[in-house]
Structures are given as structure tokens and as C-alpha cells.
Design a protein around this nucleic acid. Structure first.
Lengths: 334, 334
DNA sequence: TTGTACGCGTTATCAT
DNA sequence: ATGATAACGCGTACAA
């Protein structure tokens, strides 16, 4: 019932090979035949079956990207970047969300691999052993994102979370703060947040300051609003009223803490200094604007996509570890 | 080189048919053979080729969703919902961003259709004619989202944008506001924003009030921060200093306008009333909390996915037009 | 319960 | 420049 390349060939009075050549833009087709074939393609609304093409050519034209979540626009921006770059290269993009579950990541990898993608983007570098096995035998270009993997499966595209955290905490110390607490989002099965904690501790230790890390959320539930960060702020100040600065593992928590300060009449930054991480639009939008670390979340996806596409075409990538850097954005909260 | 079902069959000493049955969970396989086959699958890290399977079975296990953008987390939440529901049904999800370009949408549809998806989710109901043709001959389940299409291609999953806008503007009128301006995001090629304008005008006309619609951004560039909404607010108040309320086409613009008010010392809601649309986390997070229309953005994706999956399985859907409704959330800015 | 063989819709090779 | 035909890797009768 569905119309195939044979129907087109028959209608145009040529062989299937010729139609295939027209479709792939091969030069070895005469002007007239090409036009006749193209007319039939139009007329019959013929849509080539890529599944069959992929099976034969061993190139699926499919790529995949797996992120923790599409909420909060953090990784969504990475998917945005990847999709944008893949799109212009005629690569179709599969997405999957792990919801911070390393097991679901493995399931997604397995499912995607069946579709024989020409490249795969993963978030972070903490994967189940089976994922490593699968990826090794699949032998396709792989990019691990958002961190700085020392021994990446394929390539690594991201930035140094620990150094970024260290730098922004150092900035607060330079501003005269001494009792700096850290407000941290749920760490799930991810190690990027741990790296940020490490960076915080690195800076604090270097200056002989006391470490004080708090979870923004009790238990392991997922982030659901600014009020949670506000309550976490309350807890911190209750335990240590002389806290003079708070480093948050992301802007959401920083903004939530800031709102709570405004409600309680705590003067930011004079009484309390606040810094975030990621640099979401809201960080620069609110007053006072939030000091934060700008991370290249869109570029991470875009760069990973570009490199994967190149590798899929047999090109060789100069650097296996691509560090896109970060930037300390000093605003009004510090 | 890559290992196929034949390799597994040979290794397990059975026919390919048996391996296929094991893979599909068919009951007609003896315990022992099944186990032997499964062992070999494990040992060889065999990953079935879905491209071949799809070609043979005529079921790709692929679905696709096309949204305007993944920025701002508005449609990203819809993709989140869709992915979540598709995922539990073992359907792999292709995503595409139109970037508000109706032509890019057509290209994406064309490209996705080659992969023979079992379902397709589109945003809105304004498509190029070619898209209608393609979809008609493809004959697959299609869902149009975020609006309330009267004559959907397949099904429609969303809410009544015009009624929602009308209701929230009516709410402001009920609160005693008379000079209500509308601050509108770039309308691109989308008609949902036009429907919100229609709703605003409907409410205003009903009460004999004067209509005053402003673009949040000069030209057609895309939204890039709260300050743009702030400048738009300045323009509105400059032209009509007696404006006593502003209805914004989305929360970003509402929040941007609110921030500007705070900077300028304009007392919200007493001096100026502000309402948004969508109900993003920031609307309830900031102080004063923003009155807005809560729209079921995650549910839109999830519901579309569930119904598409059902239709792909040959089930019949009771309603072609699924209206998920909306909710006026009155907070502190009105 | 199991194996065999055909067909799915392409691409690619080889003649012509 | 073009046509015929063999893979590609799997599902699925059908036969055994």
C-alpha cells in the first residue's frame, strides 16, 4: 500500500537504482531523467524509507542525546544546542531523560543503540558498567557532557566544575567573607555537584575557613520551588547566625535564598552575600542581580554535536577533552 | 563485523526464528532454549537492530515531537511530559525545534516521516500545506498541541487560549481596573498569541474598555531577557501614564515588567496591576507573586503521548479534541 | 517447540 | 548514464 521506490521507478519508467541516485543527488543522472523522476516523486508524495536505507547503507542518520531532565531549562538548553547543530547536518535527534537515575540511563542507551545511532551524547561520566560494555561494542562516537572527564569513553565536552566552584567561593573570600556556607541541591547519582562541593572545600581549606555544607532539600525529593531554598536558608541561619555568605550549587537555590532574605529583611549583600551557579536568565533579571558562574550550557550541546557529527564522517578530532570554560559573573549579591 | 541475530543463533545452536521469539518474549520457547539463547545474547553483547526489525514488522517504535523551541522551559516541559509517557511504552522519541519557523517545521516533518514514526506531535495548528499533504499520505496518528484546534489533523490536545486570556483580563476588570494594556511577546508564525490577544480584546470590548496592545520587543528578534519587558513597560507608561494594569502574554514578560516597576518605585499591585500567562515557577517564586493563568504544559505532552501510543496500537480515542483546561491563579500582583 | 525461507525498501556493485 | 540484483538484519508465515 505505501508507495516505495519501485513505484516511483515504474512511474518514471526507470530502474530503482536511478531513483536512488536522484534521491542521493548523485551526478550520474541525466538532466531529463532526473526531472522526470523528481516529478513522479512530487506527484506520488513519495517519502523515502530511511529505515531501509539505513539498513543497506549502514548509516542511520540518527543521533541521540540523554540528559538528566528537561526541566529547569538547564539541560534543555544543551539539547537545544545539540539539536540545532545536528539539524543543519541532517541528523535526526533522539532524546531521553534519565530523571537522575543511572539505571534508566542504561535502559535508554540500550534502546537507542538498537536504532544504530551515529553518535551519542551522555551527561556526566558516571555510568553503569553495562553502558561501557554496550558503547564499546557499539563502537560509535560518544560525548560525555557537562563535566571534564579525565578518561572519557569518547570525547568530553564541558568545564571544570570544581575549579568554577573554587573560583567563585574564592571571590567571596576576597570580598571579606569568612563564614561561607554551601547550599547544595540533591546530589542524586550525579557527581558534578560533588565536584562543586569539592571546589567549595578546596577554597575554604586554602584559607583555613570552616566548611559548612547543607542540603537544600530534606530527603531526596526533587526540587519544586524557591520556597524550599528559603527554608534551607532558615536552617542555615538558625544553626549559625553569623553566616555571612552562602554559595549555592545553582541559581535556583540562590534566587530562592535571596527571596527569603528579602522577606526576612536581611540585607543582601551587606548582611549576607549570595552566589549561584549556571547563570540562568533569572540570575541577571532580579534585583539585586545574582553573582554566579556562567556555564556554556548551550555550547556544550552544540560543540558535542559538531564533534560527533565530524567523527561520524570519519574525521579525526584534535582534542578528546574539550573544556569550554566558565566565567565568574560578579553582580550585586556579593 | 557487527554481531547479528544469526551469530546468536549459531552460538546457541538454534535457528534465527527461535532467537527472534526469545527477543519478542514469545511463549513458544522452551525454558532451556530460552535460557541458552539469553546467555549468548548477554555474552555476545548482542543488540538487536531495530532498523531491520522495523522494516520487517512495519513498526518502527519511533515517535516524534516538534516544538517551537526548548528555551524558556515552556515547551521543554511538554517534551518532558511526552518523553516520560512514551518512554514507559518503549517508544523512542525524536525531537525537533522549529524556532518558530513554519518552513523548518515542514522540513522536520519530512525528515521525521522518513523514519516511519508511529506518531507525531506538533505544536499549534498553523502548518504549511505540504505538511497536511505529507501527513495525510503518511496516515499516522498526529496530535496538535497547545491550542484547541477545531478541525485537527488527528487529535488536538491543549486548552482555549482565548478563553484563558479573556478570563484573566476579566479578573483584572473585576478588580476595578479600567485602563488595561497588553504586553505581547513576538507573535512569530504562531497563532496562539493571537488568540490571547483576541481574548484580551473580547474582555475589554465586553466592558466597553479601550484596547491597547504593545509588543514586548521591537522588531522580530527573540526574547532575551527581562530588561526587554522592562523597556516595553516604560514605553507603555510613557504613552499612557494612567495605565492601571498590564496583561502580559507570558510570565517572562510579566516578571520583567514587575522588576522594572520595583526599580522605578511603582507599587504593584496598588499603582499598577500585572498578570502573566503559563505559570512558570518564577511567577510564584518572586515577591509579589504574579497572578497568572496556569496552563498544563507537562500534561499536554503526556496526554498527547498517551493517546498517540494508544492510536498506534489500533485503539480508538473517544475524543478528538482534548481540552485540558486552564486555571486562573490569583496572587499578589492583581 | 523449532527451523526455513521469503519479504520488508533501500543502497551498492556490477554489467551494459 | 542506466538497469538488474545481491546484500542489509530482522519478522513471520509455514512446514516440520
Amino acid at each position: 500500500m505505501p508507495i516505495t521506490i519501485k513505484d516511483v521507478a515504474a512511474a518514471a519508467g526507470v530502474g530503482v537504482g536511478t531513483v536512488s541516485r536522484v534521491l542521493s543527488g548523485s551526478a550520474n543522472v541525466s538532466k531529463q531523467t532526473r526531472q522526470r523522476v523528481e516529478e513522479e516523486i512530487q506527484r506520488l508524495h513519495y517519502v523515502p524509507n530511511s529505515l531501509a536505507g539505513a539498513l543497506s547503507s549502514r548509516r542511520s542518520g540518527i543521533v541521540a542525546i540523554i540528559v538528566p531532565t528537561l526541566e529547569q531549562s538547564i539541560f534543555a538548553d544543551t539539547v537545544d544546542g545539540a539539536e540545532s547543530e545536528f539539524n543543519v547536518r541532517n541528523l535526526q535527534v533522539l532524546v531521553g531523560q534519565t530523571k537522575y537515575d543511572i539505571g534508566r540511563e542504561a535502559e535508554l542507551v540500550k534502546a537507542f543503540l538498537r536504532l544504530r545511532p551515529e553518535g551519542l551524547i551522555l551527561t556526566g561520566s558516571n555510568h553503569l558498567p553495562i553502558v561501557h560494555d554496550l558503547l564499546k561494542t557499539a563502537d560509535i562516537p560518544v560525548a560525555e557532557c557537562w563535566g571534564r572527564a579525565e578518561t572519557p569513553i569518547g570525547i568530553s565536552v564541558g568545564f571544570d566544575n570544581q575549579a568554577a566552584a573554587r573560583d567563585i567561593v574564592t571571590h567571596m573570600i576576597d570580598r571579606g567573607r569568612r563564614r561561607i556556607a554551601m547550599l547544595c541541591a540533591p546530589r542524586h547519582f550525579d557527581n558534578r555537584l560533588q565536584q562543586r562541593i569539592d571546589g567549595y572545600e578546596e577554597a575554604m581549606n586554602l584559607h583555613g575557613l570552616e566548611i559548612d555544607v547543607h542540603d537544600s532539600i530534606e530527603g531526596s525529593s526533587t526540587y519544586s520551588g524557591f520556597h524550599q531554598s528559603g527554608k534551607a536558608l532558615d536552617r542555615i541561619l538558625q544553626q549559625r547566625p553569623d553566616t555571612d555568605a552562602i554559595f549555592c550549587s545553582d541559581d535556583f537555590n540562590a534566587v530562592g535564598a535571596l527571596f527569603r532574605c528579602q522577606q526576612r529583611g536581611i540585607w543582601v549583600p551587606n548582611q549576607l552575600s549570595i552566589a549561584g551557579f549556571v547563570d540562568l536568565p533569572i540570575a541577571s533579571g532580579i534585583t539585586p542581580a545574582v553573582t554566579t558562574v556562567r556555564v556554556p550550557r548551550w555550547e556544550i550541546g552544540a560543540t558535542a554535536a559538531r564533534n560527533l557529527a565530524a567523527m561520524a564522517n570519519g574525521e579525526t578530532i584534535p582534542e578528546r577533552i574539550i573544556d569550554l570554560g566558565y566565567e565568574i559573573i560578579v553582580r550585586e549579591t556579593t
